[in-house]
Every structure is written in structure tokens, then in C-alpha cells.
Nucleic acid binder design. Structure first.
Length: 384
RNA sequence: GGGGAGGUGGCAGAGCGGUCAAUCGCAGCAGGCUGUAAACCUGCCGCCUUAGGGCUACGGAGGUUCGAACCCUCCCCUCCCCA
């Protein structure tokens, strides 16, 4: 069993090129991790993910706990075997659902009580339980249960929330240390790693305090949570920059929930190693495609007779075989294929961007790459 | 030939004296989506507009009324049933 290990290969400014090892394989960093909340990256086959270059995907503790249930998945041999993905998996703890399902939960010191969005049943997700569920799922990287604070929040609220997230992180680490003995055969991946999560809203002193306290607990990696929840991007970048700098240099740094293609590049420039975001997959299903020349809303009438591929610079299956006109037709007709083809393209674009980022860092040309990328890829809805 | 139903904005289909430029849906046009309750949500959708309003409208032509998509008369056109 390979224990988690992060290796830094090179740096270029604050940008870092590295890799981490997990029981299910190696992941090159900076890495983008497609989100597969319910045990699937929506509209994408595993084959597509591999073709696009995905090395690790996400799963979600809260959703998989509710359905089909972590114990059922453990009986199937764990999440990897259950879903047929033998590469690394990171599971989020359910902390984001404290934010996104805010009206359906009550937070107490003990944990977060949720009313299921599926059947109304009530469940108490405690830090310990989040660890146990993830142990049964057998993901390679697990996340502590945190409170993803909504924006805006007052300083007092942000401080209290951040302090509780630290206490929860301590409880998560304590429980994690008891595994696998505490759970016995239910543990499906003894080589799991556990990441802590820095909170503190947009208040940098709170972020600093959280980063120090979280690092003091000691985790295999560190995430920055509670960003990209509505705050201006400048604030997000500022918090990311300072917080990343304060985290241990020898551990991977994961910016949770980010982001747009520009966010990825800008955050790598500030020392981030890992990302996850629903943007490429969700926006693909909703008709927004990312290309090397800007974003395309495939619904727009201007593409009705556009025979070009989405992105002439892209080598994905979608771009090799289909025109914008056809993709527009499929999307407007409500065909499922539209979601699949668009998802494959957007993920290919994201993962290809990460590949180019890694190469640029390795060649110490990241800053040049960054300037060029922001000039082209951030432009919105260009015609030719 | 006899009996019956109906003609409303691109489609479909409400409205049946004023609060109707006209419900809802579809189609169309555009925008949004950042650790996924999202193949979703929002806005616009007769014409003009300095967005406040102005103009033309509910098969056609007359009429009743302060006022008609809604009531009356005639005409045109669909559809259904019986011969």
C-alpha cells in the first residue's frame, strides 16, 4: 500500500510543479480534478475522462452517504471498485453542502444536522462521521468536515465559524488516527490521506490564524476553502496568495471549488497545486464552452451555420468530429449527446490547460504563458 | 343536402363588455452558472421608443355601447357527425 506522498519538482515564481502518490496512482500537479459528486462525472464516461487526461476525480461524502449509502459502497469493495474507476479519488466531506444546502441544515458544535433533499430524513453529520464515511468509501484523499462560510459574512461570524472549523479539523484528525481499528473491515483503503481546510472568509488575519492552526494539527495536504462563493475575484486572489504562502511548502495546496480557466492560471501563479470545480462540466451541459479563443455560448444564433470545430486548437473527440452548427443543434434539441460532447470538450480544455501550465512551470516560462493565456482565453464569446 | 363546432400574437391554447398588447406552455433571442438538490436558472419575446409612453391588433365588413378579442348582422374560411 502506497502511502500518500507529495514531491515538488520545480518552481517558477510562486508556481509549483510536482506530483503526489496515492494508493491508486500518481497525480501530476498543478492538477485539475473533475467533480463526480454522486460517483460519476456527469455526462462523462470514465473512458472520456481518461482520454481527456484526468488523473483524479472527486466524489462527495454527503451525497454518497445519502444515496446509495457508504456501507453499501463498502460492501461493494469501496468507491473505486463500485464505480469502476481505479485511479485516485478525492472525496469532499460535505462541508460544501453546509453552504449550498444552508436552508436544510442546522449547525451545532457536535456537527451539522441535515434534512435530506431526497426524502426529508434527518441526519447528523459530525466530523467523526465524515471521516468514517470517507473511510468506507475508500477515497485516496479525504477532506475534514469544515463549514464553508457564505459570502458576505461579518468578521465575528467568520471568526466563530473558522474557530469551529478548526475544532472540527482536530476531531477529524483524531478520528482519522484511530482508523482502521475503529471501523475494522469497513475501511476499504488503508492508505488514505487527509487534508485540512483553511477558512476565515475574506479576513486575512483570520485566514492566517486558520492556516497556522490547521498546519499545527498536521495533514497530508492543505486546502483553502470558502472561496469562490460570490466574493470579487480580486479578494479571492488576494486571500489565495497570502494563505498559500503561509501553508507548509512541502505539502500540496488545494484551492477548493475553483474555478474558471483564468482562476486556475492566476491561482497557480499564487502557489496552488490542486483544483476542483463544477464549472467545466455544468457549464458544458448548459451550453457554455471554453476554448483557446474565449468562451462560446453554443446556443447563440451566430453558430447556426458555423462549420468550424469548437476550438481549432483542441484535439478532443468533440472537436475532431463535430461542428459548432451540429453541437448547437444537439443542444437546442435537448439531446443528451450535447451534454456528453460538450462535457468532454470542456474537460479536455481544462485538463489540457493544466498540462500546459505544468510544462510552462517546468520550463520556467510560466509568466509568459500566463500573460498569453489571460489575453486570449479570457475573452468572452468571440466570433472568429 | 342536413346537423354541430370553431376561426386569438411563429405554434398550441386561455380569455368571452372595461383591470388585455392579451394567462400558461412550446419555439425563438440573450444572459448567468466556481468543494453539483443544476441536461438548470433568469430576462426579453406585435411595431416604434429619450422605456415614460406612442401606434396597430384577436378571420373580413358593418353595427350596439362611454368602452368590444368578448354582444348583434352579413360575408369568408376551417373541422366534425349524418346522408
Amino acid at each position: 500500500m502506497t502511502a500518500f506522498r507529495f514531491t515538488l519538482h520545480s518552481t517558477d515564481g510562486a508556481a509549483r510543479r510536482g506530483e503526489f502518490h496515492t494508493p491508486h496512482g500518481v497525480v501530476q500537479t498543478p492538477a485539475f480534478m473533475p467533480v463526480g459528486t454522486q460517483g460519476t462525472v456527469k455526462a462523462a464516461l470514465h473512458r472520456d475522462l481518461l482520454d481527456a487526461g484526468a488523473e483524479i476525480i472527486l466524489g462527495n461524502t454527503y451525497h454518497l452517504f445519502l444515496r446509495p449509502g457508504d456501507e453499501l459502497i463498502a460492501r461493494r469493495g469501496g468507491l473505486h471498485r463500485f464505480i469502476g474507476w481505479e485511479r485516485p479519488i478525492l472525496t469532499d466531506s460535505g462541508g460544501f453542502q453546509i453552504f449550498s444546502l444552508a436552508e436544510r441544515r442546522i449547525i451545532r458544535e457536535e456537527g451539522a444536522e441535515f434534512q435530506s433533499h431526497l426524502d426529508g430524513s434527518r441526519h447528523l453529520l459530525t466530523p467523526e462521521r465524515a471521516v468514517d464515511i470517507q473511510a468506507r468509501l475508500g477515497s485516496d484523499i479525504t477532506m475534514v468536515l469544515d463549514e464553508c462560510l457564505s459570502y458576505p459574512a461579518t468578521r465575528d461570524v467568520a471568526a466563530a465559524s473558522m474557530q469551529r472549523s478548526i475544532r472540527w479539523a482536530q476531531r477529524c484528525r483524531a478520528r482519522f488516527a484511530e482508523l482502521p481499528d475503529a471501523l475494522g473491515p469497513g475501511v476499504t483503503n488503508p492508505g488514505q490521506a487527509q487534508f485540512g481546510i483553511v477558512q476565515g472568509g475574506v479576513f486575512q488575519d483570520l485566514r492566517d490564524e486558520s492556516a497556522d492552526a490547521t498546519a499545527a494539527i498536521g495533514f497530508e495536504g492543505y486546502a483553502i476553502g470558502g472561496l469562490s462563493v460570490g466574493e470579487p475575484v480580486e479578494e479571492m486572489y488576494a486571500v489565495t496568495e497570502q494563505t498559500a504562502r503561509r501553508l507548509p511548502a512541502d505539502r500540496p495546496r488545494y484551492l477548493m471549488g475553483a474555478g474558471s480557466p483564468e482562476d486556475l492560471v492566476e491561482s497557480v501563479a499564487r502557489g496552488i497545486d490542486m483544483f476542483d470545480c463544477v464549472m467545466p462540466t455544468r457549464n458544458a451541459r448548459n451550453g457554455q464552452l471554453f476554448t483557446s479563443e474565449g468562451r462560446i455560448n453554443i446556443r447563440n444564433a451566430r453558430y447556426a451555420e458555423d462549420d468550424r470545430p469548437l476550438d481549432p486548437a483542441c484535439g478532443c473527440y468533440t472537436c475532431r468530429h463535430h461542428s459548432r452548427a451540429y453541437l448547437r443543434h444537439l443542444h437546442l434539441a435537448g439531446e443528451m449527446t450535447a451534454g456528453a460532447l460538450n462535457t468532454l470538450h470542456n474537460l479536455s480544455f481544462y485538463l489540457d490547460t493544466m498540462r500546459r501550465i505544468r510544462d510552462a512551470i517546468a520550463f520556467r516560462t510560466f509568466d509568459i504563458f500566463r500573460q498569453g493565456f489571460l489575453r486570449s482565453a479570457s475573452r468572452l464569446s468571440l466570433d472568429s
